Amino acid sequence: MPRLPRLVAAATATVALTVLASGPTSAGEPTVTDPRVVAHFDFALGQTPENIALEPDGSANLTLSFARQVANVDKHGAQRIVATLPAVANPNTPIIGAAAAMGIARAHDGTLYVVYATGTSETGIWRIKPGGSAPVQIAELPADGLPNSLALDEKCGVFYVADSVLGTVWRVPQEGGTPTAWATGTELQPLAAPDGFGVGANGIKVHNGAVWVSNTDRQTLLRIPVLPDESAGTIETRATGLTWIDDFAFTGHDDTVLATLIMDSELALVRPDGTHTVVLTGQDGLSNPTSVAVRGETVYVPSASYFAPVKDPNLLLARLNKGKS
């Protein structure tokens, strides 16, 4: 989730009053240990890591939102710029104002896809082919929305996009084309001030026959079944009380989730029963974490540092210890 300049003061005051609805640690559940920051970025240059897609070699592709770039970072912290999205004249992105590179997904052939939010006709999904070719827009999304996160279902050949302002999950063919409003409803909508900050559907993943979505304002994790005809089933609320939830990732085949709590600079373990426990904090190096990815025994957490008083956008790696009952 990008910086919301007009909301920072109110949000900071709210954080001091927030109490997480956590549950006790359960025997046999995953734990997260050995956190270490492997890469730092320059906030002044707009290098704010927003979202992540992993390569087979364990390196991470990160969208650097306000720099409009995609960077590749290996597990030792070496960085290179993969692509830069084109500058946009007079961007007018809802809530954030600026043009921003948001969600990212990787296809098996190495093609990267990025959601670009601009408030103009350039808002949509952009394709970056392997080998350094220039980004190409393949789908246009509503300019009055804030497309935030992106999930690719290659089996069905479709993207799902979570729109934080319009409270919609868009469905787009993988080859590009016209988006369809696949899922809508109160559960995906943002809340108006003073109850919320206008940020609804945020993170998105495809997992176990369903599309999962976080809602930042409503502090929820949602599951939307994909029906046999590929339409959306009834939205299910699977967890509540996840204050400032941004993105999330599954730890394995079951429904256990690691979720970033952006304003509190925390990473939470969310159990299938909906309870959660904080497993990493700002003391471990998190600075407004915006997304998370899991590969085997490694957890990747980018922090954009949008709200932190001391700016330290970074990439943190940790060890995932999968529990045994």
Rank of each mutant, 00 (worst) to 15 (best):
D246S: 07
P2S: 07
S325M: 14
G103R: 11
H276C: 02
N288I: 08
G58Y: 02
L85A: 05
S303L: 04
P313V: 10
P30L: 14
F197L: 12
D264A: 12
T180W: 08
G110M: 04
H76K: 14
P2T: 10
P94Q: 10
V19S: 14
G132V: 13
A210L: 09
T168H: 02
R218W: 08
V257F: 01
A192M: 11
V32M: 00
R171T: 03
A259L: 12
A98D: 10
F248Q: 08
L4P: 04
D153K: 06
D217L: 06
L242V: 14
I95P: 00
S133K: 15
V115E: 12
T12Q: 12
D312H: 12
G323K: 09
L258N: 09
V136M: 12
L315P: 09
A162Y: 09
R223D: 09
G103C: 06
V278N: 01
A105W: 10
L62D: 05
T18M: 14
V165Q: 02
D195R: 10
Y116T: 03
D109L: 09
L112N: 08
A21S: 13
W212K: 00
L191Q: 13
D273Q: 02
G296Q: 11
I235S: 00
T184G: 01
N51D: 15
G233R: 15
F250N: 04
L317E: 09
V158Y: 09
V279A: 00
E29R: 06
T18E: 15
T251E: 08
S305D: 11
A89D: 12
S22I: 14
A318T: 13
G119K: 08
A83R: 00
A201E: 04
Y116R: 07
V257N: 03
M1N: 07
T111R: 06
D195F: 06
N215K: 13
S325D: 14
E140V: 11
W212L: 02
T178F: 00
L85G: 03
W126L: 02
V301D: 06
D74Q: 01
G198Q: 03
V15Y: 11
P135K: 14
V169R: 01
L261F: 04
G200Y: 00
Q174H: 11
Q189P: 02
V161C: 12
G124F: 05
V172F: 01
D312T: 14
P130R: 13
G203Q: 04
S214V: 05
D229G: 10
D42L: 01
R271A: 03
L315A: 05
A27N: 05
T216L: 10
V172K: 02
D273H: 04
A232Y: 07
G145N: 06
L166G: 00
G185R: 04
A268K: 00
R6W: 11
R80P: 07
L141I: 06
T25Q: 12
W244H: 15
R68W: 01
W126M: 01
I81S: 05
G119H: 03
I128T: 06
I104L: 08
P35R: 09
P94R: 07
I52F: 01
A9L: 14
R319V: 13
L152S: 01
S65L: 13
L286E: 04
E236L: 13
A304N: 12
N72E: 09
T234R: 15
I262W: 11
V73L: 03
T184Y: 03
A249T: 15
K322Q: 15
G131F: 15
L64P: 01
D273R: 03
L141A: 04
N90Y: 07
D254I: 11
A98W: 05
H207Y: 03
F250T: 07
S59L: 07
G23K: 00
L54M: 05
